[in-house]
Nucleic acid binder design. Sequence first.
DNA 1: GTTGAAATTAGTACGAA
DNA 2: TTCGTACTAATTTCAAC
Lengths: 237, 237
Amino acid sequence: MTEMSRNSTQEGGQPGRIGIGLELDATHLKILEVLRENGRISVAALAERVGISRANAYTRFEALRADGAIKRFTAEIDHVRAGLGITALIFVTVRQQMWRQFRTQLAQMPEVEYCAITTGQHDAMIQVRVTDVAAVHAMVTDRLANIPAVKATETVFILDEVLRRPYVLPSDRGPGRSSRRPPADPPAGPARSTGAARSAGSAGPTGSAGSAGGEVPLGMMRFVGVAEGRAQLQQDV
Amino acid sequence: MTEMSRNSTQEGGQPGRIGIGLELDATHLKILEVLRENGRISVAALAERVGISRANAYTRFEALRADGAIKRFTAEIDHVRAGLGITALIFVTVRQQMWRQFRTQLAQMPEVEYCAITTGQHDAMIQVRVTDVAAVHAMVTDRLANIPAVKATETVFILDEVLRRPYVLPSDRGPGRSSRRPPADPPAGPARSTGAARSAGSAGPTGSAGSAGGEVPLGMMRFVGVAEGRAQLQQDV
DNA sequence: GTTGAAATTAGTACGAA
DNA sequence: TTCGTACTAATTTCAAC
């Protein structure tokens, strides 16, 4: 019950129902806004805060839940208080066509809180929470290294979590501000060579940046070079 | 109310109360285990599932909340259904001594779901959810690039979220398995040159790995080289 | 820390607009 | 669909043990 939807077959929900099952209107979004900050609010209070009747609130609440728009309700805890003061990110390069094994192994690692498949230099990023720094080392060397699917890892520690929102919503942008950029105001800066893949082996976000004070000439999206054998990997994902 | 504790002053909670306020016992952890999968469970039902009396459950529940061990209750949603189908990670290099500005600007970006300060090549990682790929581009070029504190960015897309647990707990390891590695079984592989920082400019998690089939000799922790000016940055964090 | 009873609130099922 | 109301069931609170 911890794995996420893959948009394909498999997994929790009814396999028959693919595609959007429920068009979310402004009221639905309002409900999600309230639930985001108070997941334990009663449906009666929710109805009042959203400005609809109780019956309507029950109907919509149930619909959101049944449709899968709301996946579950949970708590947010202070990891330090819970005894897991160390958080690390481990970027993993996965051997091609061993994704299934990698996923299976991951599910059996209780210290893993999050894992995402990414584009770029690495194939996956996993976030772990453990008691101490040594546990990170043990995790990487003993457990990850023993998975044949894992080709290489790169570890980084999290020093501080500046911001964490339970989730973001389209309505957060406000009624006035569109999510798409207004037609005017084309992006400044040199050469829109957006897709310029970095040659594998060269590194870092340094490089071409002009060191002119306030300007940020390399704010451009910089896709990291595709790792070796990544073309095949993509098919597997 | 969306920013997280900094362990220092500032922020929501009482500034006077530093340090652990409540020692969590096995029962507390059990409560957190139940709440993790069902944040809307009634305290009565919670008591039954944990195996304690109602009153006890209420006391502990309230204590966990008041102590801050439980920060809030929230829902987990399907971002695709909510209309935010694109998730990206943006790794940011921050100009030294401009952290405060960076943090302030971040709080005003509704598409940012998570931001963490990290060690390694970059200084921060932010996760954004938007409607389409173009919005990522707009976010990076228009909004992040306009923050003087932002020196450089590197963007990566999330193709799939394999695993997401609301939180992990020390008790997840099970009663039998310790979090620390057993004294026997030293890590295999060549040369425990753990701290070997990669020279800035060289790249990739590839490299020294012996290509022998099953063995993963470079499971070792590989800390990425410190970015330029990072020594000063650390003080600021 | 536990149990039991009262007061409150939540959830459900209807008919009407 | 949405609303309003009444009915039933459950939860929370408070008390004594």
